[in-house]
Design a protein around this nucleic acid. Structure first.
Lengths: 199, 199, 199, 199
DNA sequence: TATGAATGAGGATTCATTCAT
DNA sequence: AATGAATGAATCCTCATTCAT
């Protein structure tokens, strides 16, 4: 049993922060160890390799995000618009409590090192988002179009926003701007304003 | 006298493609040379270092994009909406003719290697986009909000879209989906229809 | 904790030997590592670069020589001739205990890689020798002439001798030849016997 | 036939100068070409390789020195001392007309690249000097001792002198210092002053 | 169990040499 | 014949990984 209760999580957090800042490839194991405040050798008691650490970090972040989205959308929402706000708060909550984790996830199309499990997890989250879109489309609240493309547009916009304000986090944005951003992304998704009554 | 007409551009294109695919840090010089079809040593007759190549590639891409945006917006547009279509076609034209270049640019917040010139060029393009937003806001056509954040949202959405369809390009998307995407991003930006005066 | 007590010194000695044999430029880092019996990577835990290793080796050798000269000349000598013998034994003692170090030092006019500290140390030793000459000249025991040129002549002669017998060392020369060499170099320096007052 | 009457010699001179300044290993072929004012490719029309150029340069220098020594000692000398002056003027004449060549020769114990011919030529010159010493010893004018060691002492002294004054040449030394140096080196060689009458 | 010194394969860069012009 | 752009083997250096302590 590790001396420190959770060296593993310490390492994942350190890795996430560095990967977000300098890329997976641009991050050295000694740097991860230093940031976590442990010796290099200790990393290898917890992860078999850099690749294993990378995947563990990715999955840790994705699972956390998934948990938040599930929690945020647990309560039944009266409208698609309200449901969107649930998603929005799930995403922004995650992005503000673990900004590096969010930043890291937003960059993983460069996923040379991602393994099967990581990819499966990523697909699962994409599916959750696509489901929301499809549901909204059926309700006439979300504009027509390939759900995955709409998801990509919306998440891309959110990622763009967070990248632009870095190193600040969503919570640092003045509330009025934050609400405007939510509204803007909602407009990106919502069906023509005239039919937006339901939303 | 160079044996090949333009090894420099060949190298920049190879670098752009690989950087977009596997990150600047994750790309090895021999891989760049191989993709360009030249010997490793030849890279160094054209660029002083990997860093120099990275910056040259970044600037080449940014300049190309700038040229396209300038060309696309040259003709006076009757409305902000029409002006948006000009920008949209500038961006999508660039993204479809040089998809790797666009993908690469969309990833440079990890810009550990960017030099002064590269940053200045990036700032110039950001300014062009922000100017468009401000102008549209004064015309009452674009929603309120910090222009740079709106730019980030819109470009982020576009980047998300392109990332999602990769390795296909915008031109590969069925026209109906492409128009929906344009419309969606426009909605992201446009002032609420009720307050819209010219759009 | 270092596994080997003094890798740093091991590396300096290996470097000195190889630099003396094949020039600084002609020596590869893997060769230094091999001769020291360590891995290449280990060099870089002790020295930042080849240049740093070169300077460390140079300074190590110069400091050792300085210490020996100081020790050899510590005891007050009754005559300039006796003082010369002190210097001689300092130089030959150093040359025979660390022949490669001596050989290396004798080659550093090709000092493309020497830094400020190395040059300062070299100047200090030159000054010690020049002081001895001037003192001897004032005593009428050493011939007239620019002290630094006389130093150059005498040290050059010693270097020539050691180079000629390599890879043997001074201690390997039959005592009679060694005494003759000492006498010869003394003659190089001493005032003409007729004008010699104390020698 | 080369366009320029003697590109070969131009290259040898350039090589000699650079080798003396930065070591054989530390000198790049393009640098030699640049200094000679020709293209890199042209070197290879005259010399098969860097090694061939190195040996050609070495031999060119040694042959020149040999010619000067033969010329200088052609006229029969009345005494060993007078003969020494002939040698001295041969050496210093060479050293002042081709300082880089002399400097280069003085460094070739680092002769990793010297071939059979170069070594033979070097041995021949050593022999000439040793012959002079032995002859002088038989005449009672030169001190006892292994001739090769005495040669090494005397040439080493001369080399030390020239190294010390670099980049100036012997001709730049004030005549009085030059005569003192000659006298000093002669003292290094000459038999005990009392018997120096013959010299 | 935790460490960090040691390692060597792998990456960036240089440079002797070739060869199309 | 002369050139210098192109090449890739060889060099310096880095960094993921191991292992003695």
């Amino acid at each position: 049993m590790p001396r420190h209760p959770d060296i593993r999580q310490l390492l994942i957090d350190a890795a996430l922060a560095l990967f977000a800042e300098r890329t997976y490839e641009g991050t050295q194991m000694p740097a991860v160890a230093a940031r976590a405040g442990v010796g290099v050798g200790s990393i290898y008691r917890h992860f078999a390799s850099k690749e294993a650490l990378g995947n563990a970090a990715f999955q840790d972040a994705k699972r956390d995000l998934r948990a938040r989205l599930i929690a945020a959308t647990a309560e039944p929402a009266v409208s698609t618009r309200a449901q969107f706000t649930q998603f929005w708060s799930g995403f922004t909550g995650f992005a503000s409590s673990r900004p590096e984790a969010f930043a890291f996830l937003e960059h993983q199309q460069h996923d040379t090192f991602l393994d099967e499990d990581s990819r499966a997890l990523a697909a699962e989250l994409d599916q959750m988002a696509a489901d929301f879109i499809e549901h909204g489309q059926r309700a006439g609240a979300i504009r027509d179009g390939e759900p995955r493309l709409l998801v990509a547009l919306a998440l891309g916009a959110l990622a763009g926003l967070l990248r632009a304000i870095r190193p600040a986090t969503v919570t640092d944005i003045p509330p009025v701007e934050r609400d405007r951003a939510e509204e803007a992304i909602w407009s990106l998704l919502s069906a023509s304003p005239l039919s937006a009554k339901d939303s």
